[in-house]
Nucleic acid binder design. Structure first.
Length: 893
RNA sequence: GCGGCGUUAGCUCAGUGGUAGAGCGGCGCUUUUACACAGCGUUGGUCGGGGGUUCGAAUCCCUCACGCCGCACCA
């Protein structure tokens, strides 16, 4: 047993133990150790962006995974927590391109060329790609780092090609020219999931067009996007709309682009059910190249597709002289201006509509016709069924509905991206020939598809591609399906749903059994963490300031299942304070001297010992249940309450009676044994939450000393997870309701005595005489505990004590507790105090009597409830009688 | 528009039919020999509004309001 430093220094301790765990291979998973007695437990990390840095979201997510992993190890399971990173196509390429432009290394990616740019990104990845991994280590993450994976590792990349080819051959992947979500900033197509609808304030422009066949007849069209008029190839009305039916088949003169007057392009009026005649004017301009719905109308009516925009969102030559080269938003203003000049703009009113934004680049997307690769989702039925039938469980459960709803209406997934960083599509072209395979075709003249795949098209394979698939590895055999997945609900569609499909498609089984969805971390005002708001603290700063354990504890304490987390640094401070408390309680133990005295002797147990052992058993049970149900904040609260309020505030204080005043060496030794027993168990249930400080104390106090190496001897990591006491242990220690009730009664006496002090303004530090008129037997130990906790000097236990008139009295479960105030008795004050208490009792008594008097109540209520109420009445009535007697003894005012 | 979640003490949240709770904060006292990152005490709520079921509702049902989150989306 080494002496503990005066204050806990997390920095040095954390580094020391993390190195120790690594050196001793504590995080390494070995499939050959898996057996019926040693079941497997596995988690794959949601791979963070390789160029990312740790955020509070990561802290939350990974602390939960670490808690689950560490507990599973203590439960004797073979644990694999598989870490790694994601190549994050768009984000990473953007970051690197931006840097290169800043450095002047290039203006546009074409200046460098594909090969050189990809090489630069790899360089960047080698240089900065490890940062987040190092940060996770600081947090204490017990990942098996020997298995760290990256989605662009050669082996992993092969898996990606393999599944592409497989799906292609199954006919689920196809290439087609379709409307996609185009990001004009990143210059790539996006999937539907990467588009976020946001309300935008704009204008609704009403302009009129003349019917060519009926000069003087004008139709008014409402649009938010006048800049796309040059791309209009029809005007549509609802065929059932009596206002316009007669015009179908005729043509209108399209006002833009402005050409020689009277020679404006004529476009047909078509009838289409899609047009809502309630909305706007009931006349819709149809721009097949720039709107998904319009494209469909175009197909139905065989309309030409006129694309008036460049990929970067600027207008092209087809938009006409006045718009060409302008950015789409600038062009909108100019187009409106042109309409005004032409005197066809009828009105322009403020209007709010929903516009799709590119999630990454933050700019409005453009619906755009382009040639892309699409995937018809595989194994959808299985993916749906496994959650619906409960084979896979979601926590909180309500996400199952969201998941189900999404699966109900999914469209094919656009998987090609016009980027260079990522997995290149394994398809080669030569003339009309097409070759799709894992390897390039033989022969000359083949050209590989230039696009890469959506990053999620690689990460959906994560649970098995990281374990050696397609080989039938031992790791896969033992650790797949994984046990738990911990992730944010924001990627339920991007990642979770797709992993489930992939699991069924290639492994024939679900990828994980339970999915825990974390909340979203917000600041204390409820706003999302964001860089621009600057409300996102750096977890590394918090670790430096408070310690990793404190950060973990603080975050877990405020993360209830199913709710968002309002982050407040106060919680981390609380975590630090808790660690300090743990540290100081341990120091107290150490100062009482002696190594662990070994076995507890039940015959020497005090009422306090029995009480704390019972509380410990409850805490173990509660924490275990909470963890089984993924209620981490409940587990944390239990730990906090048990250790601080029960162990420190009551038990350790009560122990002082033994250590400082009993002179009973055998009992002192036994008390030490109880403290050690409780501490040793407490450290174990704390360990998943507070890995560092528990390891430090475990070793410093020598709790490891007589344990086998693999059961807590080398490290607390392998100490068995404790169980709540069974009937046998409860009997052995003599823990029952009677014992609990007595200890609680004792503490109630203390509370009431302290209340008397307050009422008579006696400082808690001032030693005063208390007298107890007991209503039963009290052991010397219990009297001493009462004395210490009341800070009484002396505490006289006198059955026949005759108190001076006006002496303050508290009615306690163990008898009347009196506070004799020599020379200070204030009869009036005591009378007032009694009156106040009496009033309260009368109120309660009236309440319960009213209930009992109600014939409906007595007649209909279950016997048990009725008894409870009768007992309540008896108790209050008794108290009432005593108080009345006491007041009478004081005499009239 | 459809669906989900939420609304309990100043704040964060427990509490799913039977005496409204915890932590933090606030306030007061205390530098009592583990701990002032502490101890002790204390303050504090018509449980979002309304209606219903029931002997009894924070809890079950209906309804409204407000907030948040998905999904869809009409130019």
């Amino acid at each position: 047993m080494s002496e503990l430093a005066k204050t806990y220094e997390p920095g040095a301790v954390e580094a020391k133990w993390y190195d120790y765990w690594l050196q001793h291979g504590c995080f390494t998973a070995d499939p050959s150790r898996v057996s019926a007695q040693r079941p497997a437990y596995s988690i794959v990390i949601p791979p963070p962006n390789v160029t990312g840095v740790l955020t509070l979201g990561h802290v939350l997510n990974n602390t939960i995974q670490d808690i689950l992993s560490r507990r599973a190890r203590m439960q004797g399971k073979e644990v694999l927590w598989l870490p790694g990173t994601d190549h994050a196509g768009i984000a990473t390429q953007n970051v690197v391109e931006k840097t290169l432009r800043k450095e002047g290394a290039m203006k546009h990616r074409d200046d460098l060329g594909r090969e050189a740019l990809v090489a630069k990104i790899w360089e960047w990845k080698e240089k900065y790609g490890g940062i987040i991994i190092q940060q996770l280590k600081k947090l204490g993450a017990s990942c098996d780092w020997s298995r760290e994976r990256f989605t662009m590792d050669p082996e992993y990349s092969k898996c990606v090609s393999r599944v592409f080819v497989d799906l292609y051959k199954k006919g689920l992947i196809y290439r087609g020219k379709r409307m996609v979500n185009w990001c004009p900033a990143s210059l790539t197509a996006l999937s539907d999931e990467e588009v976020e609808m946001k309300p935008q304030n704009g204008f609704m422009y009403h302009f009129k067009v003349e019917v060519a066949e009926a000069p003087g007849t004008w139709l008014t069209i409402a649009t938010t996007r006048p800049e796309t008029i040059p791309g209009d190839t029809a005007v549509a009305v609802n065929p059932k709309d009596p206002r316009y039916t007669h015009l179908i088949g005729k043509h209108v003169k399209r006002p833009l682009p402005v050409q020689i007057p009277d020679e404006q392009k004529l476009i047909p009026i078509v009838g289409d059910d899609h047009v809502d005649f309630e909305f706007g004017t009931g006349v819709l301009k149809v721009t097949p190249a720039h709107d998904k719905a319009d494209f469909e109308i175009g197909l139905r009516h065989k309309l030409p597709v006129v694309d008036v925009m460049n990929p970067d969102g600027t207008m092209n030559a087809l938009a006409g002289e006045s718009l060409v080269g302008l950015d789409r938003f600038e062009a909108r203003k100019v187009a409106a201006e042109k309409l005004r000049e032409l005197e066809v703009l009828e009105k322009e009113e403020p209007y709010q509509n929903n516009v799709g934004f590119s999630e990454r680049a933050g700019v409005p997307i453009e619906p755009r016709l382009s040639e892309q690769w699409f995937l018809k989702y595989p194994s959808v039925a299985e993916a749906k069924a496994c959650v619906a039938d409960g084979k896979m469980k979601f926590f909180p459960e309500r996400w199952a509905k969201v998941y189900d709803h999404w699966l109900e209406g999914i469209q094919d997934w656009c998987i090609s991206r016009q980027l260079w960083w990522g997995h290149r599509i394994p398809v080669w072209y030569r003339g009309d020939e097409i070759h799709c395979d894992i390897t390039a075709p033989e022969g000359d003249g083949w050209k590989q598809d230039s696009d890469v795949l959506d990053t999620w098209f690689s990460s959906w394979l994560w649970p098995f591609a990281t374990m050696g698939w397609p080989e039938k590895t031992d790791t896969l055999a033992k650790f797949y399906p994984t046990t738990d997945l911990v992730t944010g609900p924001d990627i339920i569609f991007f990642w979770v749903a797709r992993m489930i499909m992939a699991g069924y498609e290639w492994m024939g089984d679900l990828p994980f059994k339970n999915v825990y969805f974390t909340g979203i971390i917000r600041d204390k005002q409820g706003r999302k963490m964001s860089k621009s708001l600057g409300n996102s603290p750096d977890p590394l700063d918090l670790i430096a300031k408070y310690g990793a354990d404190a950060l973990r504890f603080g975050v877990m304490r405020s993360a209830p299942l199913g709710a968002d987390i309002l982050f407040d640094e106060k919680n981390v401070e609380l975590g630090r304070n808790f660690c300090t408390k743990l540290w100081n309680a341990t120091r107290f133990r150490q100062m009482q001297g002696g190594a662990s005295e070994g076995e507890i002797r039940p015959d020497l147990l005090t009422s306090d010992d029995r009480w704390i052992l019972a509380r410990l058993s409850d805490a173990i049970g509660d924490v275990s249940t909470s963890l089984d149900e993924y209620r981490f904040s409940d587990a944390t609260s239990t730990l906090y309450r048990f250790f601080w309020n029960e162990f420190c505030d009551w038990y350790l204080e009560a122990c002082k009676a033994v250590f400082f005043h009993s002179g009973d060496e055998a009992r002192k030794a036994n008390t030490l044994a109880v403290i050690d027993f409780v501490l040793a168990h407490t450290l174990r249930i704390f360990h998943p939450f507070l890995p560092f400080i528990t390891e430090e104390i475990w070793n410093s106090l020598g709790f490891n000393s007589d344990l086998p190496a693999n059961q807590g001897g080398d490290t607390i990591m392998t100490a068995p997870w404790p169980k709540a006491f069974g009937a046998e242990e409860l009997a052995y220690f003599g823990l029952d309701e009677v014992a609990d009730r007595f200890a609680n009664a004792k503490y109630e006496v203390v509370n009431l005595g302290r209340g008397l002090r307050r009422d008579f303004n006696i400082a808690s530090s001032k030693r005063v005489r208390f007298v107890l008129r007991p209503n039963g037997e009290l052991a010397p130990h219990d009297i001493e505990v009462l004395r210490i906790l009341l800070n009484a000097e002396p505490l006289d236990v006198l059955a026949d004590y005759a108190a001076p008139k006006g002496t303050p009295v508290a009615l306690t479960p163990l008898g009347e507790l009196l506070l004799p105030l020599e020379g200070l008795i204030d009869v009036t004050a005591e009378r007032e105090r009694l009156a106040k208490e009496l009033a309260k009792v009368e109120q309660e008594l009236a309440k319960v009597r009213a209930k009992l008097a109600d014939p409906n109540f007595a007649g209909k209520v279950p016997a048990k409830v009725l008894d409870e109420h009768r007992q309540r009445e008896t108790d209050w009535a008794e108290k009432h009688a005593q108080l009345t007697k006491m007041r009478e003894a004081l005499g009239a005012a």
